[in-house]
Simulated assay, not measured.
Amino acid sequence: AAPTMHTEGHGNAWQYGAGGGVLGFVVLVLDVIVFLEVLKSNRPALNKVLWCLLVFLFPIGGLIIYYLFSNRAAHASGGYEPL
């Protein structure tokens, strides 16, 4: 007999949260946007690392804190000039 693949508990492991994979995907996309925005901003290097760590460790809470408290307008780079 051919071996059967046991996928219980593995196939949907990445689909967490109330919305399953959709919510997780939306949060991931927003987190990536924050990472890019932080990295191209004119913040000091330590601040960039701390913001990225916060959002990485707390994807949803970090996003909320970033958008509420990061003073984004003051740190916008205004374009895509090289780092």
Results as ranks from 00 to 15, higher is better:
2 A>I: 10
4 T>E: 14
5 M>A: 10
7 T>A: 10
8 E>L: 09
8 E>G: 08
8 E>I: 10
9 G>E: 07
11 G>C: 00
11 G>D: 07
12 N>Q: 11
12 N>T: 11
13 A>L: 10
13 A>W: 02
13 A>D: 07
14 W>S: 09
14 W>F: 11
16 Y>A: 13
17 G>A: 10
17 G>P: 01
18 A>L: 15
18 A>F: 13
18 A>P: 00
18 A>E: 14
18 A>I: 13
18 A>H: 13
19 G>I: 07
19 G>F: 10
20 G>V: 08
20 G>S: 11
20 G>F: 08
22 V>W: 09
22 V>M: 12
22 V>F: 10
23 L>P: 01
25 F>N: 09
25 F>T: 13
27 V>F: 03
27 V>L: 14
28 L>R: 12
28 L>M: 15
29 V>Q: 05
29 V>W: 05
29 V>T: 09
29 V>P: 02
29 V>S: 05
30 L>W: 05
31 D>K: 05
31 D>Q: 11
31 D>Y: 00
32 V>C: 09
33 I>G: 06
33 I>D: 07
35 F>I: 00
35 F>R: 00
35 F>V: 00
35 F>W: 05
35 F>Q: 00
36 L>G: 06
36 L>A: 13
36 L>F: 08
38 V>Q: 01
38 V>F: 01
40 K>S: 03
40 K>T: 04
41 S>R: 03
41 S>N: 03
41 S>T: 03
42 N>Q: 15
42 N>I: 13
42 N>E: 14
43 R>M: 15
43 R>F: 04
44 P>I: 03
44 P>S: 11
45 A>I: 14
46 L>S: 12
46 L>T: 14
47 N>L: 06
47 N>Y: 02
48 K>M: 07
49 V>Q: 04
50 L>Y: 07
51 W>A: 04
51 W>P: 01
52 C>G: 03
52 C>V: 14
53 L>Y: 08
53 L>W: 07
53 L>E: 00
53 L>K: 04
53 L>H: 03
53 L>V: 14
54 L>K: 04
55 V>H: 01
56 F>R: 04
56 F>A: 15
57 L>M: 12
57 L>N: 06
59 P>G: 07
59 P>R: 05
60 I>P: 01
61 G>Y: 08
61 G>T: 04
62 G>S: 12
62 G>D: 00
62 G>L: 02
63 L>R: 02
63 L>F: 06
64 I>G: 01
64 I>N: 00
64 I>M: 10
66 Y>F: 15
67 Y>I: 06
67 Y>Q: 08
67 Y>R: 09
68 L>E: 12
68 L>N: 14
69 F>T: 11
70 S>W: 05
71 N>G: 14
72 R>M: 11
73 A>L: 11
73 A>M: 11
73 A>G: 09
75 H>W: 14
75 H>M: 00
76 A>I: 05
76 A>G: 09
76 A>E: 13
76 A>R: 10
77 S>E: 05
77 S>V: 02
78 G>A: 07
78 G>F: 02
78 G>Y: 04
79 G>M: 02
79 G>Q: 03
79 G>H: 05
80 Y>D: 06
81 E>A: 08
82 P>R: 02
83 L>A: 02
83 L>M: 01
83 L>W: 02
